[in-house]
Design a protein around this nucleic acid. Structure first.
Lengths: 379, 379
DNA sequence: TGAGATAAGTTTAGGCATCAAACTTATTGG
DNA sequence: CCAATAAGTTTGATGCCTAAACTTATCTCA
């Protein structure tokens, strides 16, 4: 009962920062008395702080503003990329306190060695002297989220790695550890920090192509966490062979590597300069990727009836060149398109989305069900 | 609180019919005292009945078996087909008490005239003298389930029909009215009465092709209830024009009408006899439909990672001829297929699934949240 | 400047569902 | 027929919520 209502109240405060107790009561349908007692508990636990009394138009006592505490528990996010390890520390409101990025060729290292680096990164962040409420880890592969096990990460060459267990062992931190697929966490970050859309596919093009599907403000994980794995949708049955064993996979036709190869450049940075300069080969390469992306996305959009496509990762920066051909392809293939066209937008977080999602996920767990945390602090 | 626990307890009784109060307590984690009081309430409201005391292996008092009451509130389901109106009455356990089927060319009638017939069907069922706890209506079109409004039903030629409102007006029955898409309700029926699979796509081929997607024992409705509308997935970009305005829609290539046309027969019945007789044209027609079906289903299966495809409606009876080419197509196109092949099974309910789903949905609403019903009965 | 009006937030008394533990009832087996 | 065992009920305590009265703070108007 209290558990449920605590979540309700905290959610109201998060949704409307600066609300008074009375406003929260009106919003949640609880009585002022109940809200008062729950809020006091959460202030005691350091989740909520009181702010200035707000002005009001007419007569009457002014309400005291309530906010999520910026010095409350922080979420620590780590992203294990193919060639880097990114870390960031966010507070309850989602603001980034500090971030780190260190290059690391994880493809060439064993899981053990990489996780040791992750542990070092975590220890560095812990030195910031802010309370850590949870740890989130984003990995570019298939994750069984319940156990925190990485089943397979093709682009790292890893299989069956008990990420949660390993990290629990390597860092003495007694906090919940969330392990998630990089694309899924990026989609969640977009949900929390984006333009407010609650239904979309978020495609992030890094070395691989991942998609996170958000329906009704909830991540759609699919049956075995495999949901939304769009990278290996076979878009061209007669296309080139893919390391996964199939033919004409999206990733093979629209991934970063393929764009770079087709454009004849050294990497994504050069690709961007060439595009800006109007280089014909580069433009063609991106246009072709957009077309294949459109084929795969239209299947998702048709089936799940999603109104929005968010371009994340490398695709975010390529948006000016991707958008038009992608929208054309979608308009052609999506059945409800002429009635309600699919919106294509660039992610506001870009390549940073995954870490932000990992860090956010760690604190969101507290926000979604604060009572256990409150109880543990007050005990 | 009580509301939540009532649902918990009733769910335990439904899942394990014949359990004792003590067993339910163990299963739900509530105390025996709490379970006793909740069960007594539900017995009072006529949802639950006590059965014989069960034998037990050792010493100790025997528990009294608890069952969902077969004389409790019944669900009344009505299906508005293109050329028939089907009705059925089911009890809390899902057993069919009685069913009706009357031919009716609904394509040629106005919504008002058809809904008048539905009202008559409802009145007939009410004469059975069993308590009606809810009414479910299955329609072959796009439904906004919250309001009970039919947005559009291409195969009936209807648009914007307030089905719930109209029926509320025409029948004096004061019960909740559930309006749902025929394919979605059929999928739910399969979930409740099928072989226990909790994740599948259910495709039903009637005049149109509808799909219901069930993930984690929950119907996936999509953003605007449009989810899983597979009938107009464009499977062949260069295919024939479809009344919907697009080209090469699945429905146009694999629907009942197309199979019948391609086989050169008068209707589905004749198609079946010809198939049984080994008629070459009929076999080819079905094989082609299976191929297109495979194209559309593989997109769904890839994206949602579903392990099972259920053939419903007319397809259920065609399963012996559909299965092999369909499985071949899926094996080819589904990425995870060689690792975990997609199972193709025939629906156990066939053409009856939609009515069953409508009737079941009406009572499930009570099972899922019994307290309001209990309160209203005891008041 | 002060009384009246208005609204925020707190206190208090009461209700209701749950739980733990004691108790009653039913059954088996020596 | 009595000890052991388990189902189900009764009882008293606890915790959380609510309604309603109360206190505090602020504005407005005379």
């Amino acid at each position: 009962m209290r558990r449920h209502n605590s979540a309700l109240v905290l959610d109201a405060i998060a949704a409307g920062p600066g609300s008074s107790r009375a406003a929260v009561a009106a919003r949640t349908g609880l009585t002022k008395a109940t809200v008062s007692s729950l809020v006091d508990r959460m202030i005691g636990a350091g989740l909520v702080v009181e702010g200035e009394a707000q002005a009001r138009p007419g007569p009457g006592r002014r309400g005291t503003a309530l906010h999520l505490s910026p010095s409350g528990p922080h979420g620590l996010g780590v992203e294990i990329g193919v060639d880097y390890i990114a870390t960031c520390l966010v507070d309850l409101t989602g603001r980034v306190r500090k971030r780190w990025l260190r290059p690391s060729d994880n493809r060439a290292s064993s899981p053990g060695r990489v996780l040791a680096k992750v542990a070092t990164a975590v220890r560095t962040a812990v030195r910031e002297e802010v309370p850590i409420g949870g740890l989130g880890v984003a990995v570019p592969g298939l994750v069984e989220s319940a156990s925190g096990t990485l089943r397979v990460a093709p682009n790292l060459g890893w299989r069956e790695v008990d990420v949660r267990g390993e990290l629990d062992r390597r860092i003495g931190l007694d906090v919940p550890v969330l392990v998630g697929n990089e694309a899924n966490l990026a989609a969640l970050a977009e949900l929390w920090h984006g333009d407010g859309a609650a239904d979309f596919v978020h495609v992030s093009g890094e070395i691989g192509i991942g998609a996170g599907i958000v329906v009704d403000a909830q991540l759609f994980e699919g049956v075995s966490g495999f949901g939304g794995e769009i990278g290996h949708l076979p878009v061209d049955p007669r296309g080139p062979r893919c390391p996964c064993g199939s033919r004409g996979c999206l990733e093979r036709l629209a991934g970063q590597d393929e764009m770079v190869r087709a454009a004849g450049v050294s990497g994504p940075e050069e690709l961007l300069t060439r595009l800006a300069a109007g280089d014909r080969t580069a433009l063609m390469a991106v246009r072709s990727a957009a077309k294949w992306l459109g084929v795969a996305l239209s299947a998702a959009v048709n089936l799940l009836d999603l109104p929005t496509v968010v371009l994340g990762g490398t695709y975010a920066r390529l948006e000016p060149w991707l958008r038009e051909p992608l929208e054309a392809e979608l308009a052609n293939r999506v059945m409800s398109a002429e009635w309600a066209p699919v919106r294509v937008v660039a992610s506001s977080l870009g390549a940073e989305a995954a870490v932000r999602g990992a860090a956010g996920g760690a604190v969101r767990a507290i926000l979604a069900d604060p009572d256990p945390y409150v109880a543990s602090v007050l005990a």
